Amino acid sequence: MAITVVGSVAFDTVETPAGRVDRCLAGAATYFSLAASYFTDVRVIAVVGEDFTAKEEAVFAARGIDTRGVERAPGKSFFWQGSYLENLNEAKTLQTDLNVFASFEPKIPAAYQDSEFLFLANIDPVLQKRVRDAMPGVKLVGGDTMNYWINDHRDNLLKMLACVDILLINDTETKLLAGSRNPVKAARDVLSLGPKSLVVKHGEYGATAFFGPNSFHGNGLDSHHPFRAPALPLAEVVDPTGAGDSFAGGFFGYIASQPELTPAVFKRAMFYGGVMGSFTVERFGTERLRQLTREEIEERFAIFRELTHLD
């Protein structure tokens, strides 16, 4: 079953205690699609500039990712430069150039309309909702957002949240969106805004899923009991950039690969999300995601399961 993802395809310059990389292929849609491609078919809607060459296209092609929805526009691609030298858990933004992304108007190829899954990566909520409305046939919608949209575009964001089945954001964003410092109360308040389920990402500490009373038409997910998935303790983190988007790709990709969404599938998807995020941080940019095998993924999934095995 195919996932369509709309988001950014970009270039990043990143500096961490492990070193520095200049203009590596990045962007939320890039990390998401690479991670999800190990589980199911992926289609991308994005915009790139003239600096996006056959070399970058080959990264998507090698994973069988459909890029017919990636528009080529005059100018340069979205660019971000950040540093993790002060704090590996939070990037310090040094430069952001929207470039062609500033006038991005998502165009949905006709061939994408039979997609059963849609993921709205972190972009303007107006664009997110526009894509959602233009794809009424999808059966499950995931979404992401960030502090900027929460603070400065709340009204538009609330309209987007009303049409999302699963929202994936971090703990800081959850508290900001809800206006509450208590993580449990904040999660419940976010669920009241529309999403059927909420996955709160905690970075190096894993992720927690919260379920609304109508989660997926009463399939057994309990609104009173959150589910926590661990993160893998790593001796060295090279580059945290894209870990959250890779988590989303692994999570949503696994769900799309299964015949139906059950409580067990949702919980396993949380583990697969953690697996893909853990691989991403081992190298700069998308390097590790490009080199994986499904066998490596399953071996690490087994480690994640062992982390929570009691008996």
Rank of each mutant, 00 (worst) to 15 (best):
V6H: 03
V9T: 12
V9Y: 02
D12H: 07
D12W: 14
D12E: 15
D12C: 09
V14K: 08
V14P: 14
V14D: 10
P17C: 12
A18Y: 10
A18G: 10
G19C: 13
G19D: 13
V21H: 07
V21P: 00
D22R: 15
D22T: 14
D22P: 00
D22A: 12
D22C: 01
C24A: 11
L25Q: 11
L25E: 13
L25R: 05
A26W: 06
G27K: 04
G27D: 05
G27M: 07
A28M: 05
A29C: 06
A29T: 06
T30R: 05
Y31A: 06
Y31C: 04
Y31E: 06
F32W: 05
F32H: 07
F32L: 04
L34F: 14
L34K: 10
L34W: 09
L34R: 04
A35G: 07
A36T: 09
S37K: 06
Y38H: 04
T40W: 02
D41W: 00
D41L: 00
V42E: 09
V42L: 02
V42G: 10
R43E: 05
R43G: 08
R43H: 08
R43S: 12
V44K: 03
I45Y: 14
A46L: 12
A46D: 12
V47M: 09
V47Y: 03
V47P: 00
G49S: 06
E50P: 00
D51M: 07
D51P: 00
K55N: 12
K55R: 15
E56V: 04
E56I: 04
E57A: 13
A58L: 06
V59Y: 14
F60I: 04
F60V: 03
F60K: 01
A61I: 05
A62T: 08
R63N: 15
G64T: 01
I65W: 04
I65D: 01
